[in-house]
Design a protein around this nucleic acid. Structure first.
Lengths: 351, 351
DNA sequence: CATATTTCTGAAATCGTTCTCATAAAATAA
DNA sequence: TTATTTTATGAGAACGATTTCAGAAATATG
């Protein structure tokens, strides 16, 4: 229906190949014919049909995004939105397109990936997580398909590119922050330990405690999960706070969970930061907007996404480039959810 | 490189057309050869290359998403994430793919759209806003390209499909909710009036006031915008709350703005809901997690997205289907940010 | 002026499918 | 048995670009 390269060619009295070359601004075509052909393209309302090009070039100029629980849960967390922002931005400046997986279960997501790869829908893939028993990364490796993961590789760290924070160090610093405020009863609320982030941050937490000779009550280390309901999360918090040696400082590995925790604390009348100090992770907009505003470690999710995207595109263009890891720095942004420990805290509880 | 339909054909001793028909499970091929060909496909590790199909079918099985300020700002708002969830889900069940625009300015977004349409990258488009002076919708109409908009059409309401809430009614109800709580000094904090949502909700607010003989101070109607900084938003709130007849009930047309307002109020020591009642819009997860939890009108963003997506796909399959609007119901979900008016409120301010 | 070189353009194959049309073989009807 | 219909498959032309190879024209070189 629409006007093709051939139509333009006919009208301009040139060969289709010439029109094609004009399209890609080949130096082998004289300026005069370029001008003429361009004018005719304009007149006829010609526009490149990308699919023809894709077929012969074997490149779609689009990159695929694989999310944890894909749409269903990931979108809930502003952290992923922020990463997506970074990815989107990088893609835009390099003129790439974005394709999202829409599967929800681990299995359907995997099938989406297979379709993307085998169907040659995308040139490369960004995997937004690093997780035990994951099938996606091994699959991509096996098929030698370009990809980068956001998170710490479980294996083959020098076989593919990854973008990550130093999560154990970040968690150590966050914990130290509480310790320096004088807190000695520390709690940790993390996520599903199948994910590397969760493991790393827990490790950092324990490391800090150890280095300061603080011992952690086993019941003060818990995890809540996006796929859990908010109610479940609240239960976890309440249980922890009802334990005999309840923590006065809490490290929570996600702002989103941070808000859940705050909501739970509110319900049992424990005040932040007066009764308990909490520090979150990611510095998403909800941390700023929380009440009280949440002290959090900024993991620069935007940059995480940007670097992943940019790195992937580089790999696509120059595959011989050494694959490597890039570590995005973290920093604590202080807001109002932490406070120096004061001995009175525990007594308040006695009421 | 990879194995094609022809390779399979050769090995199976059939014509490529036969393999193609096996692929689409055509009834014109006998079960025996189907079985045989399938087995060989399996053995050879054949997988359909979508691009070949796209070229001849002239259909990509993917739909494009156009966001307001695209990635940059839209992702910030959980409302859009929620819509995207709905879209994603609908696409998945119908086996469609998702393509996001990555442009940031109005102009680059428009170019993204042109590329999508002319380049035949997508079969249809979902426009996530309805806005004055927008070029995208007129462009799509002019090119007779299938699309649906989430929001109220500015024109040609029966020329294309749209999915929307009844925003004036929703705002009227929200306002009535405050009025029934006894609030007589009402404020409205909306968004950019270029968008239809914003206009509708303001209209509903005014309508409710009028119907109850309440008059609104001009300075009590303000708008803050995602593209503004949070600081600007806070200024607006503070100014409003410092006016002589400051409102005791606030209608805020987005949860996200609701949190900004709450943060501002916090700073000037005005308590929610004791000193001022506020009601938000959209019922995103941040409303639930806010402190205090935000009373809000649920616009069912997930369903908004789902219906838009589903509707678009229907249009693609049966274009003769009548284009129509679908209105998603709204409802108020009560939480803790509203409270009956008590005469003491204003005095407290005197301190 | 003849030859070598460079510059510009065209012809045609190709990418991986789909799909229309034709046809051989098998099944049914006469 | 012959004619007719049905069933199963194949041949080959698309779809809309790109790209290799080759050749004509223009320019430079001796």
């Amino acid at each position: 229906m629409s006007v093709t390269i051939k139509d333009v060619a006919k009208k301009a009295n040139v060969a289709p190949s010439t029109v094609s070359r004009v399209l890609s601004d080949s130096p082998r075509i004289s300026e005069t014919t370029k001008k003429r052909v361009r004018k005719i393209m304009e007149e006829m309302g010609y526009h490149l049909n990308i699919n023809g090009r894709v077929l012969v070039r074997q490149s779609t100029q689009t990159i695929g995004i694989v999310m944890k629980d894909s749409a269903t849960h990931s979108f809930e967390n502003p952290f992923f939105s922020e990463i997506l922002k970074g990815i989107s931005e990088a893609c835009h400046t390099r003129d790439y397109n974005l394709n999202l997986t829409t599967g929800e279960s681990e299995e359907t997501i995997f099938q989406d990936v297979v379709k993307m790869v085998q169907g040659k829908r995308v040139d490369g893939i960004i995997v937004l997580y690093s997780k035990k028993d994951d099938k996606v990364v091994p699959y991509l490796m096996e098929h030698d398909f370009p990809f980068v993961v956001v998170g710490k590789p479980l294996f083959g760290a020098n076989k593919f590119m990854y973008v990550d924070n130093d999560n154990v160090e970040a968690a150590r610093e966050a914990t130290n922050y509480l310790i320096e405020y004088g807190h000695k009863d520390l709690g940790f609320i993390g996520g599903d330990l199948k994910f590397e982030v969760a493991k790393d941050r827990l490790q950092g937490f324990k490391l800090a405690a150890e280095q300061h000779g603080i011992d952690i009550q086993p019941e003060s280390v818990q995890s809540i999960d996006l796929s859990d309901s908010v109610e479940n999360g609240k239960e976890v918090v309440k249980k922890m706070m009802n334990s005999p040696r309840r923590p006065t400082g809490l490290v929570i590995t996600d702002d989103y969970n941070g808000l859940t925790v705050m909501a739970a604390l509110q319900e049992i009348q424990i005040k932040v930061p007066d009764d308990v100090s909490i520090i979150g992770f990611n510095n998403t907009m909800i941390a700023k907007l929380a009440n009280p505003p949440l002290t959090t470690v900024d993991t620069n999710p935007y940059q995480l996404g940007y670097e992943a995207s940019d790195g992937l595109i580089n790999i696509l263009h120059t595959p011989e480039m050494v694959k490597r890891g890039v570590i995005i720095p973290t920093s604590i942004v202080e807001r109002d959810s932490c406070k120096p420990y004061s001995p009175g805290i525990k007594e308040l509880d006695a009421n």
